[in-house]
């Protein structure tokens, strides 16, 4: 059991651009706000439209949109794989329990929403999406949360992930050096304490740069 554990590799951090795939199609050019609204409409339609034919039609429409975004089929299939497996399992279960019509409706509905969301994610740069989010959250300044603070928090979090991953690696090595790599406590307590300490010094650095004024 422990041998299998050792073979796990630390997941690579794919950087601030995330799952975006660059391109120049109409979907790439469409603003992030419009695409988010479109995604919400698809989600709503899946809930409202009843029956297997409507569900299949929606899935077909979203598939056409995905094809027009010029995404690499292998990447799309890879991000769809988990939901395809879920849809398959749930579809079989519902076929057995409630018949083919419900099975197709539920399975197609799941794949439709996830595929639409994948298309939005793959055609929109994360920073543009986060900017749009910042603009959408701008009214929060009335409850004491200025948009600049939101943007700063996002950037600070993105900066902290690779640093904390490195800390987790150091903690794991330290635990291993003392023969404690099987103890969740020896791994998690130092990781959590260092996280707080890091946040404290970062807070001090922000204050020193006048960002709390």
């Amino acid at each position: 059991m422990s041998r299998r554990q050792d073979r796990h590799q630390r997941p690579a951090w794919s950087g601030p651009l995330g799952l975006y795939a660059s391109g120049t199609t109409w979907l790439h050019r469409l603003g992030p706000g419009a695409k988010s609204v479109g995604l919400a409409v698809v989600g709503l339609l899946v809930l409202v439209v009843r029956g297997p034919w409507g569900a299949v039609l929606l899935l077909a429409a979203v598939t056409v949109a995905a094809a027009s975004a010029g995404l690499r089929r292998r990447n799309v299939l890879r991000s769809l794989l988990p939901i395809l497996v879920t849809a398959g399992v749930v579809g079989l279960y519902q076929w057995w329990q409630r018949g083919p019509a419900i099975a197709v409706e539920v399975a197609a509905g799941l794949v439709t929403v996830v595929l639409a969301a994948c298309v939005v994610t793959a055609t929109t740069r994360s920073d543009h999406l986060l900017d749009a989010l910042g603009r959408a959250l701008a009214p929060l300044r009335h409850v004491g949360l200025p948009p600049r603070t939101v943007a700063l928090s996002v950037a600070l979090m993105i900066r902290s992930v690779p640093a904390l991953l490195a800390t987790a690696g150091q903690v794991r090595d330290a635990a291993r050096a003392r023969g404690l790599e099987r103890s969740p406590r020896a791994l998690l307590v130092p990781a959590a304490v260092r996280t707080v300490a890091r946040a404290r010094s970062t807070g001090e650095a922000l204050a020193a740069r006048g960002l709390g004024d």
Binding site: Q9, P11, M157, S160, V161, L206, A207
Partner: peptide, 25 residues
Amino acid sequence: RSSAATDVALIATFAAFVAVCALLP
């Protein structure tokens, strides 16, 4: 001193901590 800067740092760092927890094997 005002804790505003430290609060932002704690929030962002813990958001990153949750991400690391989700990403680790």
